[in-house]
Design a protein around this nucleic acid. Structure first.
Lengths: 215, 215
DNA sequence: ATATTAACTAACTGGATAGTTAATTATCCG
DNA sequence: CGGATAATTAACTATCCAGTTAGTTAATAT
């Protein structure tokens, strides 16, 4: 399933000693570990344990823990940004466009909740130093633009697009990041990441955001 | 300033070898450190360094790092809860009551941003295990109740009070917790904790929340 | 004044952890 | 086939860090 028989990869199909596969495995395991503990708290031993290779491979492919972290961050961030950038919002009226963005954003977040955790750790532990300033804007600008357009057109209230974009993000991702705390508000055993709960959050959040901006 | 001359504390006024003062200093330093790194990442050496006593005192007054963490969490949480509980909202109409709660909540958060960071770490690192289930509800129930009342009275949309309360929290605290990431959206050097920026966030957030619920 | 105890310190211990190194094995290519 | 090289490992090192211990100093009570 990893490679189709027609592709002519430099290495063989039958796994074992496949550099790309190993690198991918390391990135996957690292993403989980960084989401659990952040750059500071992540244990390279723990990452290696979820790989089929030894810890030394981390240093063979990625110079050190920090470089590995950067690679994880870039890969996950690119995935999230592209989820929004592939939307065609050109002719769409602001309210409809914003709803679309919020819904597909939340869809991506629920499928890859790791990144949201990593980004929080990034802010709190690393003071955001692993961001190239360009990156964060990539995520917020589309939202700011829709809001600005909505105000111009008279569909949205007179808000500050930047503050609003940040607050919208908060309303969207808090549910996922703080889920282990707020789960205590529901019946014991409720899984906040279950399809039904996520679906309810998406509708509640999207409605809340749209209502919060409409005139 | 610590003790008035009339109080008859067991220890003297002129500091040095004052148990309560030392315990307080440790709690303060620990709060800063736990906010920076969470329970896992916090270094007892770093905490001690911001105290005028040695590391061993941490273990003398608080059995271990975990117990110290619990003490910090309880103290900071009590402060936050009381900020909301001291409001008298009995006769206040829902919209007005919610605005009051949001504004005084954000006031407390901006004065003590440490707790918001600690609570995020708590969710992500510790899976919320240091919460007595009672605690989290103390913070969310007042908001849920106002929302429920607002729906009954016909002032608010038909939302799920619980989901809405969570999303409101997100819109309120994300700005503070993610500030080191989202600061890149503003001019370099902008301090998101400056009085002006905080004031703008409070108005934007409160307006956003109220608009998001109104019918 | 001195015995008692509370507050405090310096120096240590054992275990964990990031990163290294030298040797080993699989794969490829001529 | 056999030499070259890429992928991989086991075992090691140096450092960091939570928690301990044995002993010291300051305040208080008698």
């Amino acid at each position: 399933m990893t490679n189709s028989p027609t592709t002519k990869k430099p290495r063989k199909e039958t796994s074992s000693r496949d550099a790309e596969l190993t690198k991918g495995r390391i990135l996957d395991a690292a993403e989980d570990e960084f989401a659990k503990a952040g750059l500071l708290g992540a244990r390279t031993e723990a990452i290696a344990a979820n790989t089929k290779v030894t810890k030394a491979m981390i240093y063979y492919y990625f110079e050190d823990k920090e470089k590995l972290y950067q690679a994880v961050l870039e890969r996950a961030f690119a995935r999230r940004v592209s989820a929004i950038q592939k939307l065609d919002l050109a002719g769409t009226p602001p309210a409809q466009a914003l709803r679309l963005v919020v819904e597909s954003f939340l869809d991506e977040v629920s499928q890859h909740p790791n990144l949201s955790a990593i980004l929080f750790y990034e802010a709190m532990q690393n003071k955001g130093r692993f961001y190239k300033d360009i990156a964060i804007a990539t995520l917020y600008e589309p939202i700011e633009n829709i809001i600005a357009r909505g105000i111009e057109v008279g569909a949205f209230r007179q808000v500050d697009p930047r503050h609003s974009a940040v607050n919208i993000m908060g309303a969207c991702v808090f549910y996922f990041c703080a889920r282990e705390n707020v789960k205590h508000l529901w019946e014991p055993g409720t899984d906040l990441l279950s399809p039904e709960m996520v679906k309810q959050h998406v509708t509640e959040a999207a409605d809340f955001v749209l209502a919060g901006l409409r005139k």
